[in-house]
C-alpha cells in the first residue's frame, strides 16, 4: 500500500473530461487505486467513472490517493502528477 495527499486545483474539479481521463489512466495499472476525501471515511475506486462522480471532488478539495498492488508506487506518483497538472 502506497499513498499520497493530493489537492484538486482545476476549476471544474474531478468530473466531466478530467474525470474520464483519470479513469482511463487508472485502468492501465494493475493495482487497486482509491481516492478518499480528507476527513471522510468512504473510499472510492478511481477505476470507475460512476464512483469518481459520486465522490465529486471540487476545486480546492484535498483527498488521499492510494494504491495497493504490484505497480502501486508508479500508479500513485503518476496519477498525482496528472491531477496536479489539470487546468480545465
Amino acid at each position: 500500500m502506497y499513498s499520497k495527499e493530493i489537492i484538486v486545483s482545476n476549476p471544474t474539479g474531478l468530473h466531466a473530461r478530467p474525470a474520464s481521463s483519470l479513469v482511463s489512466k487508472a485502468n492501465s495499472y494493475e493495482s487497486d487505486i482509491t481516492l478518499q476525501r480528507v476527513g471522510e471515511d468512504d473510499v472510492y475506486t478511481v477505476k470507475s467513472i460512476i464512483m469518481l462522480l459520486a465522490l465529486g471532488l471540487g476545486q480546492g478539495e484535498k483527498a488521499i490517493l492510494a494504491a495497493d498492488g504490484p505497480d502501486e508506487e508508479a500508479a500513485v506518483n503518476e496519477l498525482a502528477e496528472f491531477i496536479a497538472g489539470l487546468t480545465e
Binding site: S20, I49, I50, M51
Partner: peptide, 13 residues
Amino acid sequence: VQAHREILCDIVM
C-alpha cells in the same frame, strides 16, 4: 459517445 461507453463499461456498476 465516449462518455456513454465509459458508463456502460463501468466496473462498479
